[in-house]
């Protein structure tokens, strides 16, 4: 009996290689993100030094591979002699939790607003679009400082404020997407069948606008992490003794000339995390669209 070539079960190494080839982007993104998340979760066990341990004898030590560096401080130390690797690892806690919290909160608020505005139109849309425009025309930094100054800093406040900065991204994209999806025959078909409005929104509209929401979420995560950094820079961040990447960038600002690693290390960490978010977003976008799924 002869078996056509195409029908033969793929050999194991081949199947593995094909899996990696198909999901390269997602795997890279997931790996980086997983590194960042495990750094945040297991910081006390991974970090070689306590993040706030000051060692004035070893101030501004360069990374290990630069002349004058040592293996004690792999990524060098800052102006107070604190270990930069440890601070970057601990910094992931603040950046990722603020990023994740703000993305979830912003997506919920923004998508709901966009969904209602896009589906119902009319005066609902007019009111919500007005809200969106008010938010867009408001100088956000001013609003953030005002809110954080009057309600106090802390993790929850920062998450709420950063979510307030990003919800419009979702609202605008979702509103437009909902408008085009609502005009599709399958939504009219659902109405003709007699599907209740809430069920139409959940089963017909939402699944078909998930990909753009995911894309916006990945961009918004980048924006959230950067916004958190900016707020830390302005002294209204999560605060406390917790190092954050934004705060470290700010600390390194004055030493850029002679200790570039103070800025570069948290900068690279931020950039990689943002990149990982975008790669995952891209990959998820392909995966959530059955037309693109193989």
């Amino acid at each position: 009996m002869t078996v056509p070539v195409a029908d033969r079960p793929a050999s194991r190494p081949f199947a593995v290689r094909r899996f990696f080839a198909r999901h390269t982007i997602g795997l890279i993104g997931l790996t980086i993100l997983l590194c960042a998340v495990s750094a945040a979760l297991f910081a006390p066990w991974i970090a070689p030094h306590p993040p706030s341990a000051v060692n004035l004898m070893a101030r501004l030590a360069p990374p290990a591979w630069v002349e004058g560096g040592s293996m004690t401080h792999l990524l060098g130390t800052d102006n107070l002699g604190r270990d930069i690797l440890s601070r970057v690892i601990y910094g992931a806690q603040v950046s990722l939790s603020v990023g994740a919290g703000a993305v979830v909160l912003g997506a919920i608020i923004g998508s709901s607003v966009g969904l209602l505005a896009g589906y119902f139109g009319g005066w609902v849309d007019a009111v919500l679009s007005f809200l969106i425009n008010v938010q867009l025309s408001f100088p956000f930094t001013l609003l953030a400082i005002f809110l954080l100054a009057s309600f106090g800093g802390g993790f929850v406040s920062v998450v709420v404020v950063v979510a307030l900065a990003t919800w419009v991204n979702y609202a605008r994209v979702v509103r437009g997407q909902v408008m085009s999806v609502t005009n599709q025959d399958y939504v009219e078909a659902a109405r003709t069948v007699g599907v209740p409005t809430l069920r139409i929104l959940r089963h017909y509209i939402l699944p078909n606008i998930l990909s753009p929401i995911i894309v916006v979420a990945s961009f918004s995560m980048a924006q959230a992490i950067l916004t958190e950094a900016a707020l830390s820079f302005l002294g209204v961040g999560v605060g406390g003794t917790q190092p954050s990447w934004g705060m470290m960038l700010n600390d390194g600002r004055n030493y850029l000339q002679n200790a570039w690693w103070m800025t570069a290390m948290p900068g690279i960490a931020t950039a990689l995390t943002v990149l990982a978010g975008n790669l995952c977003g891209d990959w998820l976008q392909d995966r959530t669209d059955p037309r693109l799924r193989k």
């Binding site: 399958y186 078909a189 209740p196």
Partner: peptide
């Protein structure tokens, strides 16, 4: 909505009238 089970519709474009995610 409840009355709709008695009257139904078939649409012109079969490519657009089925929810692609279902």
């Amino acid at each position: 909505r409840a009355a709709r089970h008695q009257f139904q519709m078939v649409f012109q474009d079969p490519y657009a009238s089925l929810n692609p995610k279902m």
